[in-house]
Every structure is written in C-alpha cells, then in structure tokens.
Design a protein around this nucleic acid. Sequence first.
DNA 1: CAGGCTACCTGCCCGC
DNA 2: TGCGGGCAGGTAGCCT
Length: 282
Amino acid sequence: MPELPEVEVVRRGLADHVVGRRITQATVHDVRSVRRHLAGPADFADSLTGRAVTGAVRRGKYLWMQPDDDAVLCHLGMSGQMLIQKPAMPAQKHLKITLDLDDGMQLRFVDQRIFGGMLVSHGGAVLPAEIAHIARDPLDPDFDADEFRRRLKKRQTGVKRAILDQGLISGVGNIYADESLWRSKLHYARDTKNLRAAEVTTLLANVVDVMSEALAQGGTSFDALYVNVNGESGYFDRSLNAYGQEGLPCGRCGTPIRRDAFMNRSAYSCPLCQPKPRKGRW
DNA sequence: CAGGCTACCTGCCCGC
DNA sequence: TGCGGGCAGGTAGCCT
C-alpha cells in the first residue's frame, strides 16, 4: 500500500527508535514474510541476533536497516506496517516478525496480505544486491533528472506505466502517479515518445511536489492499514485531487473525475483537464 | 522491450 | 445471513 512518502515516514520512525539499538532476538511468526530470505527463517533470525543497527536507509519503496555492512531489507507490500511497541502489547492478528531491541521495546512487522517481507542481505548496507534494479527516487539528492528524461523518451509506452516502473523512477505508486498526472494535466495514456520536454519537466516537478507535500502530512491513510511506527495515520488523503475521487468534481474545472480500469487496477483522471490522447494527434 | 496476465494474500463492501 | 465477485497504497515472473 505504501508509496514513497509512507515508506519515508516509516524510515524516519526506524531512525528514531531502532538506529543505535541492538537486536537481542528475532522471531519469525510466519515464514511467508521471509520467503525472499532464501537461506530460510532460522538463518534470518540467526543473522540478526546480537546485531547493532547503525542506520536506516530508503530507496523508492524499499527500506533497509544497517547492522554494520549488512542490510535488513524491508518492503511493506500493500499492507505492511512497522510498529514500535512494548512486549506487553497483545500481538496483532497479522504479526509476522518481531525484533526485540536492547531498550526493552519491540519492532513488530505486521502485514495482512503478506505481499511485503524482509530479508538479510549480506554486505548490502550501501545498496542491497536484491534491489540493484530499482532506480533512484526523485527525492534522492543523486537522482539524475536528465538521465530520467533520456530513458523516458526511449520508452514506447504510456506515461503512467512509465512512472510506475520502479526501474525507471522509483517510489511512485498508483496514488501519486494519478495525483502528479492530474497536476500536470496529462492523461495517463499519453505516449512517452510524444511528450514535450516541458511536459516532462512539469511532470517531474509535480511528482516531487506531491510526494513532498504528502510526506509533510505524514503520508496518505485511507484506513488503519497505513500508519507510522507509533500507529498514527497520515492525512494527505484530504488533499487528493484525483485518486479515489470518482464522480467528485475536479478541483480545477468541476467536471466529475472518472475511473478507468488500468493494469488490473484503476486510473483516476479529469476528462476535461486531462484529455485522452487521440491517434495521430499527440 | 512492451504489455497482458497470473500469482502471491486477506479483508471489506456490495448485490443477490 | 451467506456467498460470490470486485476491489485495494505492490512486485515478480511467465508468456506472446
């Protein structure tokens, strides 16, 4: 569920509550949450026991803790949560992994749908090999906007597909794709090859803006599934202009927002502000 | 490489 | 009240 702003909120929580701590014990409650740790759940737990966490880093929607040169790579999938809680707190229904910390608190990974998970990447502290294919995200100081433009221009696809491709630009999911396209007055099916340079520049700026604004508001929460490490919801959902707004008036022109089936999911757009491309025209 | 489809999961909401 | 279908902030892999 979480996109870059939500994952960054979680990373900051880990930086505050886990970095500087030592993991005294690791418990895997559901092996499916460590299925990407190929050496198995026992090795996962053994690899973490006694390790001190020295950093918490994020690229796109992935984040990892750094026990020295290694990485505990985490992805929240659609429903993953990281919670800092006292051991006395009753276990959540979908509690998957518990890391006991040397200050008496626990880091709990809760994940209803189990699309997320953790793995230990040996020597992966700088960049885990498992995510070498993930592009830098636009909030990364080393994000290369010119390279993004070059690579985008070479794509033969629709613009929303392109910005959802984590290998081209990371961190953008369905919410912020629709929101940045709405702000840019671009239809999601616009061909990347036919985008004008100014349109790409505007889009990139809007991607950065919408994710920065969402981050400042603690992320987007529609329900209790997305929360920070203290269990609190973000409130950027109040600022959404397109995503989930089917039938509601466009904030610019009043035309009802429409929902289209797209990539087995949804694409929300304003039919007037974001005109559908016609063959031969764009 | 593009893109359609499936799998991986649980839960909620709606219509019947 | 129950059941089936559709839907949900994601990713990877297989096929054409």
